[in-house]
Design a protein around this nucleic acid. Structure first.
Lengths: 228, 228
DNA sequence: CATCAATTTAAACACCTGTTTGAAATGTAC
DNA sequence: GTACATTTCAAACAGGTGTTTAAATTGATG
């Protein structure tokens, strides 16, 4: 099975491209099977449901990426003195770019899928991530904590999620941004170019100085008090 | 018309909440009219189409926010010496928080809608924005340019879009993040708290030092060469 | 009250969605 | 080549989508 041009493989390839471009909910199984040139029912036959197809598309990359990241994080945690924030963030580059070996434009597609997953099916992917790769992410948090010892844990939480937003949104809008950049600055940027631009931006952002205590929780009297 | 409890008003209120929570494409007119307790056909009668309803929902906030921002930008541009980046970004706070006067939780809802607009209907809102408020945004670019004179124009372009991603994604995930923050750090955060946390993060990010020339365009041999 | 326009309503429209079905086709082992 | 399991296929399913229609209701004006 998985003989490169098998039905399952054709479905996965067609699905990932359409999912990345249009989002999960806005891509129909008929669009996928039409592009893959397979029968409509084969999706349910091979994957069970659309939901499981989405998971399979993501897993193809996660199963390659996450062990690589885990390995890098573990390596950095073993060093004697704490690593700089730039060093920590740099370890993402190689594992991400190696996704291009999984599939052509694999890096771009995976990051776009990640963005879709976080915004389309709200909260679902976030839960899945913490559930399956929480231990890996904890190592990242630990590394950043070491690199920025003055940063309170809660502030670090927010800044890491801000950063996730930066990456994920940028990748989701990648095509549009690349077009504008080319039109306005005659600048040809690929996914690696964007990643390399992100690094100094995120390094400075996460390590930003904490503003003077502004009694935030007092000046902002619980406006959003409606529970949920 | 617009007598606060008119049909149009009820539709707009129901629509904005559902749109913000579930996204534009994943919210049906039947969900909206059901929540608003009006007839299904009244949406098409009063607004023409779903697309125009979406625009009306956004316009209700944009028509308040953008002139305010324009005014602030113009004021800052008139000062003798260039303003600091932190000062420039700070001018967003008041106009954004004043959206709470337009509607309860207006700030949060508008920012969520903005996030939805940029990710749901890909590229559509970006085009609309540049078309209608390009002149206002140009002033912002000019202000940031003045605050960071060493930043090349193309780098500034990317960093401003990175920042847009940070804001927009954070707001789209606002509920989930606020829940986690409360569970993990017993920290009650409202929309104002998030905005105040974003300011130092974005200030440091946009003004991040430019890394040494790394021959980016040469080390990254046009991988994404497929046009689109 | 009568007239006319503005609004609301229930019903239907044509189309798209993910999924299931049962028969046909294909592949595999004896 | 016959039996068996795997895979493909066209067709239908039940349910949801935005939009339209024409009649009923409401509101305002004379």
């Amino acid at each position: 099975m998985a003989s490169k041009h098998s039905t399952q493989h054709k479905i996965l390839d067609a699905a990932q491209n359409l999912f990345a471009e249009t989002g999960f909910n806005d891509t129909s199984l008929r669009q996928i099977t039409s592009l893959a040139e397979v029968n409509l029912a084969s999706v349910n036959y091979h994957f069970g449901s659309k939901k499981e197809l989405i998971q399979a598309v993501l897993q193809r990359y996660l199963l390659v990426l996450m062990p690589r990241l885990d390995q890098e994080f573990t390596r950095l945690l073993a060093t004697r003195q704490p690593n700089s924030l730039a060093q920590v963030l740099s370890v993402f580059v190689k594992p991400l770019l190696e996704l291009n070996k999984v599939h052509q434009n694999g890096t771009r597609i995976f990051l776009q899928l990640l963005g879709r997953g976080y915004t389309d099916v709200q909260g679902h992917l976030r839960w899945f991530f913490n559930q399956n790769y929480g231990r890996v992410l904890d190592k990242l948090v630990q590394l950043v904590q070491q690199a920025c010892p003055d940063l309170p844990a809660s502030e670090l939480f927010w800044r890491l999620h801000f950063s996730l937003g930066t990456v994920v949104f940028t990748m989701a809008s990648n095509e549009a941004l690349a077009e504008i950049a080319k039109a306005d600055f005659n600048e040809k940027v690929d996914i690696e170019g964007v990643i390399l631009r992100l690094l100094p931006y995120l390094s400075a952002a996460i390590a930003a100085p904490i503003p003077q205590v502004a009694h935030i929780s007092q000046t902002a009297p619980m406006l959003a008090s409606e529970g949920r």
